[in-house]
Each structure stands twice: as structure tokens, then as C-alpha cells.
Nucleic acid binder design. Structure first.
Lengths: 240, 240
DNA sequence: TTCGATCAGCTTGCATGTAATATGTTGTAA
DNA sequence: TTACAACATATTACATGCAAGCTGATCGAA
């Protein structure tokens, strides 16, 4: 279980703090660390085989991203997913990502545009196959690519944690709404093709559709949960 | 020089990390740490009389805010002020703050509305007196109050570092454009009064004016610097 | 005098030890 | 049996020490 890190290669490039951040973020986003659960520094250290100092600094960043809450002498709370806050995240993301998508459509070079087209095909394919992890990985690639192409460091820095939160929502909602993956995939593809074509207006409209779709899913979950609660009053319908 | 911290009172309320963050942020924003200058962890520790661990964690946050850059074995670079990035910050701030201001106008309670009116009077007064520090302090209060009243944790978290950067720009530009303080003060006051009146539309319009004003100042600085450079080719017109 | 190499010094990255404190447990008394 | 108090334990907050690496200085040779 130890020594899962290859010494002398990537270690020299990235600091342990960055590595810890990436790894823990991934664990939180993919729900390997369940929302609402509590972990300890030591557990993370042992799990990642990284010292306490880098893990601690990574947690500072994750805390600011809104992914965890460090409770002084209790442990690290993986933030529960709350509908209200999810909607607020989508609201802010809507504002900033509109800017980013428009800029990407305007500023991308030919190589990037080709990548967008490629990603569009890939993500539709993954959606058709209902290959969830592949889909989410491609979504992540899309987010990263768009943020890079926008050439807007400030917006890029702002959008990153919002994307992380949104990706976590994706993993979370997936358990209920596996059916929406195809629709979502098309929405993604439409955005990417519009960006590739340099069509700012369409890109913006398609982004609007995607976020509205996501919003409805989040609201749908809410309703479904309420419905469940009213049907079976015992309340054991919730997962741990 | 030591023990300037009172033990047993504020110490128990805030962690040293938070305290270090607040203090260093204030130093950067008020230009007490000059843009482009390099400081060391040790210097900060000695200056604040706080250990290295809290200072280090504060620096992680400041790094993410875009206020400093930690260069691995060189020191901590207080980020230089660049026009392009300043404009980008204003651009994103424009998007998010529009949301915040509208919500504040809609959701503020009577106490808050009273505060806004009070702040409006105060800031106009400070602007009339050309009292910079007072003005900037009131601006800070305004930012904080607006963010609170908006009742939008996500937007609040996003806007905080943008406000910090903008405040730093304010301190920076003040050296050149002392004349614009009155105009800026009026713009601020107009926003606050619109919020107090619950007039979302006007609040938004006035915010637009304020940010456009700020943008012009930033661009003006740019032009003036270029002009200076072309007039006196020796280049000693720059400050250290 | 100038160029180059070696070395001493600072600086951050990271590990680890210590302290404070919240919490659950256990034992005791009513 | 229950309530309460004392204690053991687990956890983060913070201090500190060591190591790695970059820089600039200093000394030597051409």
C-alpha cells in the first residue's frame, strides 16, 4: 500500500502540497469521500502516504473551495451537498462561465478548436454508452480546456472551484438521474461545437441550456427526496 | 517589540492563521508591502510575532487570492500590479457584484438599509474631505456589508478576493488620481442609496457606472505611464 | 583585470514533536 | 436505574528542526 508514488519523476515537478490537493480534491469530487462524512488528517496522510504538513496546506485550499470544513478538534467534515448552495454555485458559475465560453469561442486557435470538436464526439459517445466515469472525465477535460482557451487568468481561478463543486454534483446526481446523461452529453457537445465554430452567441445559448438542465436536475432531486420522505414517513430512505 | 498581542481575549476567538491572513492581506492591500517587492516568511513572522506555521497557511490563502506568489527558494513575491489583470479582475467583479448588489437591494432588512444610507453619507463626506484612508475604510465596510446582505455564500466567497485586489488598486491609483475620489465617492453613495431604497435597477446601473469609472482610471494610468515613458526616455520617472 | 568555480548563506518544503481541547467512557453515588 | 463527574483518548493548532536548492560572494587562475 505504501510507496505508490514514483520517486524522482513527478515528485520533482510538483510539490507534495499540490499533489495532496489534487488527490484529495479528486476523492471528494468522486464521492470516494462521502458528503457529510468525517475524516482525519492522519487517515488522509496514511492513505496518500504524504506527510501532515502538505496535507494540511492542501486542506486549507480545499476549505476555501468549499469542499471541506475543518472542525477544530473534531476532524475534517466533507461538506454535505445542499440544494440551495448547489443552485447558488450554478448561479455564479453561469455568470463567469458565460464570459469564459464566449472568450474561448473568440480566442481559441485551430488546434484548440480541433480538440473541442474531438471532445464533442467523444463525450456524445460516452453519453450514448452511458459510461459514467468516462463521461465525467471528458467533462473535466472540457472544463479545463475551456478555461485555458479563454485566456483569462482571473476568471480561470474563480471558475476552478466552482467546476469542482459542480463535478461533485454530477457524481452525486448520477445515482438518481442516470437517464439525463445523454441529454447532458448533447448539451456539452453543442457548446463545444459552437466554440469550435467560433460562434459566441450559440455557445452562450447552449451553455444556458446546459446549466438550466443541470439546475432542473438539482431541483428534481430535491422534489424526489421530499416525495420519498412524504411517502415513507419512517425516514430510513436516506443513505447514511 | 514582542507580545503586542493580548493573550486570552481575541486569541481565543480567532486562530493565529486567520489573524495572520487578515494582517498580511491588509499589509498587501494598503501597499505597506509594495507591489513587486519580495519578503520572507521569517520577516513576516517577526513582524507579526506569529509562528511560521500560521503564516505559511495564511500565505497559501493569499496565494490563491492572487495577492502573492511564493517562489520556492527565493521568497514571497508581492504580486506586481498589471493593468491587464486589473481589468480582468474588474470584469469578473462586474459580473458577480451585479448579482450581489441586486440581491442586497432585494433582501436587506431595515437595519441594513439604514446602515447603507449612513455609509452613503459618510463616504461622500470622506470623499469631500479627500480623506483617503477613511474613504478606503468605508469602501471596505461597504463591500463587507453588501456581501453579507446578499445572503449568497458562494458569491460572497468568490467576491472577497476580488474586492481585496480592487482595494489594492484603489490604494495604488490614489497616488496618481487623487482628483477622482469625489466622483468615486458619489458613485458609491448612489449605489448604497439605491440599495437602501430597494431599487435593484438603479443599483445595478450605478454599479455599472462605478466600475466603468474605475476601469477608466486604470486605463488612464496606463496611458499616463506610457506618455511619461515617451516624454522622458531616461526612464527614471518610475518609482522604485 | 577578468572570468570561472567553489562555497557559504538564506530561503522555502516538509517532518515531527508538543500542547490544548472536545468527546465519549467509565465509575460512583443517589 | 439514572445522573453526574472525572478521566482517557483522539484530534487539530502550532512550534521547531532538518534538508534541499538557489544566489551571490569570494578566491584563484589566466
Amino acid at each position: 500500500m505504501k510507496k505508490n508514488r514514483v520517486s524522482g519523476n513527478e515528485d520533482a515537478l510538483r510539490s507534495l502540497t499540490d499533489e495532496a490537493y489534487r488527490l484529495i480534491e479528486e476523492m471528494v469530487v468522486t464521492l470516494r469521500l462521502a458528503p457529510g462524512s468525517v475524516v482525519t488528517e492522519q487517515a488522509l496522510c496514511k492513505d496518500l502516504d504524504i506527510g501532515r504538513t502538505p496535507v494540511r496546506e492542501a486542506l486549507v485550499r480545499l476549505k476555501q473551495d468549499g469542499l471541506v470544513v475543518v472542525v477544530p478538534r473534531r476532524g475534517i467534515l466533507v461538506r454535505p451537498i445542499e440544494t440551495t448552495e448547489s443552485l447558488m454555485t450554478l448561479e455564479v458559475r453561469h455568470l463567469v462561465e458565460t464570459l469564459i465560453v464566449e472568450r474561448a469561442a473568440r480566442l481559441s486557435n485551430d488546434v484548440d478548436r480541433h480538440r473541442f470538436r474531438h471532445l464533442a464526439d467523444k463525450i456524445e459517445e460516452a453519453a450514448k454508452d452511458k459510461a459514467f466515469v468516462r463521461f465525467m472525465r471528458l467533462d473535466h477535460s472540457f472544463n479545463t480546456l475551456v478555461a485555458e482557451c479563454a485566456q483569462h487568468p482571473v476568471a480561470q481561478k474563480v471558475i476552478a472551484p466552482l467546476h469542482a463543486v459542480s463535478r461533485r454534483l454530477g457524481f452525486y446526481y448520477a445515482q438518481w438521474y442516470a437517464g439525463s446523461i445523454e441529454e447532458t452529453g448533447h448539451a456539452h457537445a453543442n457548446i463545444m461545437r459552437a466554440i469550435a465554430a467560433g460562434d459566441e452567441v450559440t455557445a452562450r445559448q447552449e451553455l444556458e441550456k446546459l446549466l438550466e438542465l443541470t439546475r432542473k436536475i438539482a431541483l428534481g432531486i430535491e422534489e424526489e427526496l421530499l416525495e420519498d420522505a412524504s411517502h415513507t414517513e419512517s425516514g430510513d430512505g436516506r443513505k447514511s
